[in-house]
């Protein structure tokens, strides 16, 4: 760490590459990086697109793309589905991007989290403006029998400003195989990974566990994204 600003890093790296995938600890870093490359273009340099690979606790859009792909692949549709998102909804950037993405479809979202980790107000305001159907819950049991997807997330210790706050909620949600007995057989369990203890390993053997395949879906989805941005040709 030499104290270089993100602007300087982008201005430098943009000379070497055709595209930048940026993962950064600060919220909004990718947007700023895109502004920097846009200004660079105005100065006559080539276009260097930015892909947000996760900015702080804000967003992780390519994860949301592979999440949508995984939902569509397993349920054959997205409209009309009932989707539970469980865990750290406040700091979980994959959750934020997924909520924005699902707002484009006609589905019902169930946000399951302790009060202090519920979905941020500004995202809730966005969902309200778009008339998205959503409810908030504090227990997985309240929703498990109704939903088509359970999207589990890790309580992220590294995002908590205060360790005491983390200790209050660590391990609060744990999905195990016996809980799945109440779920639809067509329901699928998703998780952006890595998991810690929020999904018991016994769930791995259940037909409803889909998180490892979901991670694999990241390859074709991100390949497609790179191809779209860099102007690759469509294969038959």
């Amino acid at each position: 760490m030499k104290g270089e600003t993100l602007k300087d890093t982008i201005e430098t790296v943009a000379n070497y590459v055709d595209l930048i995938v940026l993962r950064h600890p600060y919220d909004g870093a990718a947007r700023w990086a895109a502004d920097v490359t846009t200004n660079r273009m105005k100065r006559g340099h080539k276009k260097v697109p930015i892909i947000n690979g996760g900015d702080g606790k804000n967003e992780h859009p390519t994860q949301a793309m592979l999440d949508l792909y995984s939902i569509k692949k397993t349920q054959k549709r997205i409209d009309g589905l009932d989707i539970a998102i469980v865990g750290d909804l406040k700091y979980g950037r994959t959750v934020h991007s997924l909520a924005y993405a699902l707002a484009l479809y006609d589905c019902r979202i169930r946000f399951v989290a302790p009060e202090i980790l519920q979905i941020p107000e500004h995202i809730e305001a966005y969902l309200k403006r778009r008339n998205v159907k959503y409810t908030k819950h504090s227990k997985i049991e309240e929703v498990i029998s109704d939903v088509d997807i359970i999207y589990m997330t890790r309580i992220q210790k590294e995002r908590f400003p205060d360790e005491n706050e983390y200790n209050k909620v660590r391990g609060i949600f744990k999905l195990n195989r016996s809980m799945l007995s109440k779920a639809k057989t067509t329901m699928r369990v998703l998780h952006p990974l890595p998991r810690v203890d929020e999904i018991s390993v016994d769930v791995d053997e259940d037909i409803r566990a889909y998180y490892f395949e979901q991670a694999g879906n990241g390859i074709p989805v991100r390949m497609a994204l790179l191809s779209l941005i860099l102007g690759g040709e469509e294969n038959e």
Partner: peptide, 14 residues
């Protein structure tokens, strides 16, 4: 200023 303390605009000269 943005009210999000972790926003890049509050962390770097942006």
């Amino acid at each position: 200023l943005c009210n999000n303390a972790n926003c890049i605009s509050n962390k770097e000269p942006v």
